[in-house]
Amino acid sequence: MSMGRVVCDLTISADGYSAGLNQSEERPFGDDGGDGWGDNLHAWYADPEEHRAEVDKMTAARAFIMGRNMFGPVRGEWDRPWNGWWGDDPPYHAPVFVLTHHAREPQPMGGGTTYFFVTDGIKSALEQAREAAGDGDVAIQGGATTINQYLAAGLIDELRLHISPLTLGAGTRLFNGVPPLKLEQVTSRAASSVTHVTYRVLS
């Protein structure tokens, strides 16, 4: 059976940050010049119809992988019940494999999403996601730290960046710790509040 691609989508500032400093449960994107919920960095989400093609691609994967902080704030030993940032009906509607150091039973959610908590590393998470996806794509959902690990390991085929017209100056940055990459630009589209760029990762 043929396998799908490993893709990722990430919104970043013009200077490459996916979140500002001082991330917390109340401010998951830290200091982005707004209220901390990414209202500046992710302003383009306010008009999903303008970005329908990009949004459809983001949700087309058959399985997803995310870092623990993308699921929810770091809590040591899961010290209280926590369903993540994404509410009772997350947008994935597919299996989601969460990288963590703390084991937890699978967590079914509304709409067909189930979170699986993976404690043995990025390659194990990818193997499980590939099996779940069949011949469909696997999406590395983020954040930037998780994407950087997969880029450094040479495990991403397509990188889709959504570049917001602002700078953050500090925070969590894409490509930190990643060896030099050769990228082939596949598409580029400038919209009113963001530029969408897709790269094929060659090496």
Rank of each mutant, 00 (worst) to 15 (best):
R80K: 11
T195V: 09
P91Q: 13
I156Y: 01
A63P: 00
H51D: 03
S13A: 13
D35M: 08
T172Q: 07
V55W: 01
G112E: 10
R160K: 12
G30R: 02
P28R: 05
G34Y: 02
D89W: 00
W78Y: 14
A63R: 07
G72A: 04
R75I: 10
H51C: 04
G111K: 13
M66D: 04
G171T: 14
S124Q: 11
S192D: 14
W82N: 14
Y45V: 06
Y17E: 04
S188W: 01
I156N: 02
L159H: 03
S203Y: 11
W78F: 13
G34K: 05
R104D: 07
S24K: 07
P108S: 13
M58W: 05
R173K: 13
P73C: 11
P48I: 09
G169T: 05
G87I: 06
Q149P: 00
G34W: 02
F97R: 03
R200L: 04
G169W: 02
G33M: 12
Q149N: 04
S2E: 12
G16W: 00
V74Q: 09
V197W: 05
D88A: 11
P73D: 07
T113A: 11
S18P: 00
M58L: 15
D35H: 07
H196P: 04
R104V: 00
D137M: 03
W44Y: 04
I156W: 00
T145M: 11
V98I: 13
Y150N: 05
V55D: 06
L10K: 00
A125H: 01
W85G: 07
